[in-house]
Amino acid sequence: MAGHGEEKLLNLTLNVWRQRNRGDAGRFETYKDEARDISTDMSFLEMLDVVNERLIKSGREPIAFDHDCREGICGQCGVVVNGSPHGPRKATTACQLHMRSFQDGDSLTIEPWRASAFPVVKDLMVDRSAFDRIVAAGGYISVRTGNAPEANNIPVPKYDADLSMDAAACIGCGACVAACPNASAMLFVAAKAEHLNLLPQGAPEKDSRVLAMIDQADGEGFGNCTNHGECEAVCPKEISMAFIARLNRDYLKASLKRPRASAAAGGAG
C-alpha cells in the first residue's frame, strides 16, 4: 500500500517496574525472551498483551497495566517509556503508539506515572482519583437536570467555543503530572477550568471554580507549576500551556474580588 511501511519483527529488552500493591517497595524486572518477534504493526499495549500471554503460559504473573478504550480517548492507559510519558511519539497515547516507533534490539524502560498524588497500586497502575476530586471540587457548571434554557438562547462566539473545545479535549490521563519535573497537575486543572470559564454558561461560577479547584489540587499533594512546558510536550491531546496562563489570570482576578456573601457551592440535590 502507498506509504505503508512493511511489517517487521522486533526483538526487544523490557525493563518493567513490578510492584505487588501499594505497600510493596517494587523493583525493575527484565524481560527478553518474552519480548521477541514483536510485530511493528502492534500497538504498544498489544505488545504488552503478547508479553503477558507468554508470562501466563510460563506460569508467571502478567504485568498489570491500566487501559480501556484503546483508541486514545478514555485516558486510562499511560506508562512512561524510556523517560517519556506515553512514549516518544507526539500527540499519541500509549494505546495508539505503535511498535514501528521502535527499532530491533531496543531496550525499553517502562515505568508507572510517578507522583505522590498518584500512588502506584500495582505494577504500572496508579490511583488517579485525585483528578476526580479536583473536578468534584468545582469542575462543573451547577445546572440541575431539567432546568436548562433553550440551547440557542445562549449564543457562544465560534472562537470561544473552539478555544473551549481545545481545553475540553483533555482526557485526564495524567501524563502532564507524570512529565512535570514538579509533578504539578496545573495543565489538567487549567484545561478543565478553562473549558468552562471560556463559555458564557460557565462565567457565573468562574471565581469560585478556580479557587476551589486550585485548593483541591494543592491539597492532593501535586507540585507547583514553574512553567517548564514538559506537560504540553507530552499531552496526547496537545493542550496548550496558554490555558495555564489563563487560569493564573482567572485566579488572580478571583483572589482580588471580594467574595459574595451567598452560599458558595450552590444547592445540593
Partner: peptide, 8 residues
C-alpha cells in the same frame, strides 16, 4: 524515574 527524557 529511572530514565528521563526532557522534551520541552
Amino acid at each position: 524515574y529511572r530514565q528521563r527524557k526532557w522534551r520541552e
